[in-house]
């Protein structure tokens, strides 16, 4: 998901803020995990099914309903044509991902279907979706997708009893965001460093897809020598000259010149993609070896989920 191939041209990664939920939505439909999904932030979207649809959605902070009935997450759902699908607020978090059988039909730009708003490319004409847009799915579906569709096709809303487990307990995990000390962590004084790993940080209202600004203990440097800009990635935690920490997210710039106090374990980037202003988070320190184990565990979980669905419908 996202595009990493053009980072040298300063084209950001983009893509889903919560990649795990986005991938789960695709997996449950038998889609390739690179299929385009719609990222719905907060709530209020309404869709009209012009044809029979098979969708899936995953994520936090809202639910999708049809005729007042809440659709379950993390599983394929058949919706007959003529129904309205409404997004309603529910619980904590802020993003759900809507996938459709075959993936949404938006063009591949620079190797990816991801939208990048600041330069207005990718996705639907490089912009956010608007009322009145018609979205279609791609015609090429996998054999598994066709089998799931055939099994669910009905005259009413229908879904199977199975589901893919979420992997992330967003509320619990946000109290323990795992990070590895960054390249410039030794530029901070001891008090700031220990504070970073023990104090609560609150998500600021001026957070967006580029970065999550944190309010909390000011992080002071041992000296104020400027550093040369170098590569940063989603998950890099930079500290600005005023001592504020910022978690760089999906649309972040490709290079940065602020000291990097820490780097998120990749598996916890998805958790941060669900944070809303006012959320309190805590950081804990792990090693790259631990971060890589967590990453392998996540990938195995998603791989096994896809495999289980394949076995269920193909054999």
């Amino acid at each position: 998901m996202g595009r990493r191939q053009h980072l040298a041209d300063a084209v950001p990664v983009s893509g889903a803020m919560d990649t795990v939920s986005a991938r789960i939505a695709n997996i449950t439909l038998g889609n390739d995990s690179n299929c385009a999904v719609v990222e719905l932030t907060y709530s209020g979207a309404v869709f009209f099914a012009e044809t029979n649809l098979m969708i899936s959605y995953a994520g936090e902070g809202s639910v999708l309903t049809v005729n007042g009935e809440t659709l379950p997450k993390n599983k394929p759902v058949f919706i007959p044509e003529g129904n309205y699908i409404e997004q309603k607020p529910s619980g904590t978090g802020c993003r759900v991902y809507l996938a459709i059988a075959g993936g949404w039909d938006v063009p591949v730009v620079l190797g990816s279907r991801s939208t990048y708003l600041p330069a207005a490319f990718g996705g639907r004409e490089g912009r956010s979706l608007q009322g009145g847009d018609t979205l279609e799915s791609l015609n090429e579906r996998s054999v598994i997708t066709d089998k799931i569709f055939a099994a669910l096709q009905s005259s009413s809303v229908k879904y199977p009893s199975w589901q893919v487990s979420s992997l992330n307990d967003y509320r619990k995990r946000s109290k323990d965001i795992r990070v590895v000390p960054g390249r410039e962590s030794n530029r901070f004084n001891g008090e700031s460093l220990s504070g970073f790993f023990t104090e609560a940080y609150t998500v600021s209202v001026d957070s967006n897809r580029m970065g999550i600004n944190l309010i909390g203990m000011v992080l002071n440097r041992l000296n104020n020598t400027e550093m040369l800009s170098t590569a940063v990635t989603p998950g890099t935690i930079q500290v600005t000259n005023s001592g504020t920490a910022v978690i760089l997210m999906a649309d972040c710039q490709t290079t940065g010149g602020y000291p990097r106090i820490a780097q998120l374990a990749s598996v916890d980037l998805a958790i941060c993609g669900q944070l809303v202003p006012g959320d309190k988070i805590y950081f804990s320190q792990i090693t790259w070896i631990e971060a890589e184990k967590l990453y392998m565990h996540q990938e195995e979980h998603l791989y096994k989920a896809a495999l289980a669905i394949k076995h269920k419908y193909l054999y």
């Binding site: 490709t254 290079t255 070896i289």
Partner: peptide
Amino acid sequence: VASVPAYCTLTVHFDYLQVSRWVPQKVK
């Protein structure tokens, strides 16, 4: 996947799962 030059650095991005399959698999 990609390499990104900056003033004094070159950052090399790769696919973790593919690299983990290189032999010997036990090496980080």
